[in-house]
Design a protein around this nucleic acid. Sequence first.
DNA 1: CCGTTATAGTTTCATCTGAAACCATTTGCA
DNA 2: TGCAAATGGTTTCAGATGAAACTATAACGG
Lengths: 153, 153
Amino acid sequence: MTGQTLLELENFLPYRLSVLSNTVSLAIAREYEDRFQLSITEWRVVAVLGRYDGLSAREVAERTAMDKVAVSRAVAALMKDGRVRRATAAHDKRQSVLSLTAKGRKVHAEVAPLALQHEQRLLAHLDAEEQSWLARILEKLLQAEQELARRGA
Amino acid sequence: MTGQTLLELENFLPYRLSVLSNTVSLAIAREYEDRFQLSITEWRVVAVLGRYDGLSAREVAERTAMDKVAVSRAVAALMKDGRVRRATAAHDKRQSVLSLTAKGRKVHAEVAPLALQHEQRLLAHLDAEEQSWLARILEKLLQAEQELARRGA
DNA sequence: CCGTTATAGTTTCATCTGAAACCATTTGCA
DNA sequence: TGCAAATGGTTTCAGATGAAACTATAACGG
């Protein structure tokens, strides 16, 4: 990986990131879908609303790295299932105020521990030192790349 | 990240992996598309054929972590653009024997350095020690997760 | 050998996704 | 004020994607 000149897909960092991320996400997605009829995008919305109640759609988009179209669709699906409630902001009638219903909170309470379990399962392959390097490295890369993406956009 | 009990999406490992991977892939995909009319899946096929000429579609799928449908479509598109040539295996008429045309080799020769540049740009955010930890950690996680996925499938 | 089963690859269909167009409301400023 | 531009959010359309059905060929077991 470190500065080779010959391109081997198997060792190409963006490719490896993509494969790892897809493998992990797919496994999680399947379980959420099977057990809760919840897609990953819906889960992200539920996760942030469980933590920060009353966000607008734009705020949800920011915190989930989803675009506004995806948020709009996820919210629509969640409302149809009675898991999310939408009100209109008093000070700005364009903005929505989103919150979990009792049903939505129940889903959150059930899925959150499951999510943490998945994370632990993944981290279990690493020792403590590796775990802390990973956290640090991901943080750096995310910051730098998201900064770049923002500029590029 | 390391064993928290409260779920914060921003610190959730699968989420962070997904965001990082998507951010990086999207940037690369845009450039390949703009400059070479080449999608990421097509690029993967070109990359492995550039290195291992004469693979079958199944072998390409294995080496690119793509499913056979995606490979079939990518190959069809590449053939339409005259970048890939397909023959039938002499010993097994079901199998294809895929290789790059001169045009395909040209694309490979142009895109490969670009890909490596992208990788370097990413790695530039890390010092040497971090880079080597990242390589090691990714290797471990990929091995473990792909093993799991295979079993699960 | 011959019929069943497995494998390589393609096509079809239904769903997902992103970009652009769109509607409603608010903001900024002449 | 009032009108152009910006913002929040939804809808539409077109292309991407995955699962399952399908075709063709090969392998295997009786």
